[in-house]
Computed example of a mutant assay.
Amino acid sequence: MSTAELHTLTGAYALHALPEDERVAFERHLGACEACAQEVRELSATAARLGLAVSVTAPPGLRDRVLRDITTVRQEPPPHGRSSRAGAPAGRAGRWSTYALAACVAAAAAFGGVAVWQNQVAQDARQETDRAQQHNEQVARVLTASDATTTAADLGDGARGTVVVSQSVNRAVFLASDMAQPPGGKVYQLWFDDAGTMRSAGLMNPSATDDAVLLDGPVDRASGMGITVEPAGGSDQPTSAPVALMEFGAA
Rank of each mutant, 00 (worst) to 15 (best):
M1W: 08
M1T: 11
S2T: 10
Y13M: 06
L15I: 01
H16R: 14
H16A: 11
L18M: 07
P19T: 03
D21N: 12
E22G: 00
E22Y: 06
R23A: 15
V24R: 14
A25Q: 11
H29Q: 04
L30F: 14
A32Y: 03
C33Y: 11
E34H: 05
Q38E: 14
V40T: 14
V40M: 08
E42Y: 13
L43P: 07
L43S: 08
S44T: 15
A47Q: 05
L50V: 15
G51I: 12
A53Q: 10
V56H: 11
V56W: 10
G61H: 10
D64S: 12
L67N: 12
D69L: 13
T72Q: 08
P78T: 00
P78D: 02
P79R: 05
G81W: 14
S83H: 11
S84F: 05
R85V: 08
A86G: 07
G87V: 03
G87P: 02
A88I: 05
P89H: 08
G91C: 02
G91Q: 02
R92A: 08
G94T: 12
Y99P: 00
Y99D: 04
L101R: 08
A103E: 13
A103N: 12
A107D: 09
A109W: 06
G113E: 13
V114W: 15
A115R: 12
W117P: 01
Q118L: 12
N119D: 15
V121Y: 08
D124H: 13
R126L: 14
Q127F: 04
T129C: 09
V139D: 03
V139P: 06
A140I: 05
R141W: 11
L143C: 07
T144A: 15
S146G: 13
T151Y: 07
A152V: 15
A153W: 10
D154Y: 09
L155T: 06
G158E: 03
A159V: 03
G161I: 10
V163P: 03
V164M: 01
V165G: 01
S168H: 11
N170A: 13
V173W: 02
F174Q: 02
L175F: 00
M179L: 14
A180G: 04
P182V: 02
L190W: 00
F192D: 01
D193L: 00
A195I: 00
A195W: 00
A201R: 05
G202R: 02
G202I: 04
L203H: 05
S207V: 14
S207F: 05
A208M: 08
A208Q: 09
D210R: 13
V213I: 12
V213K: 09
D216Q: 03
D216L: 05
D220Y: 01
S223P: 00
G224V: 01
G224M: 06
G226T: 10
T239R: 11
T239G: 12
T239I: 02
A241W: 03
P242R: 00
V243H: 01
V243R: 05
A250C: 09
A250F: 06
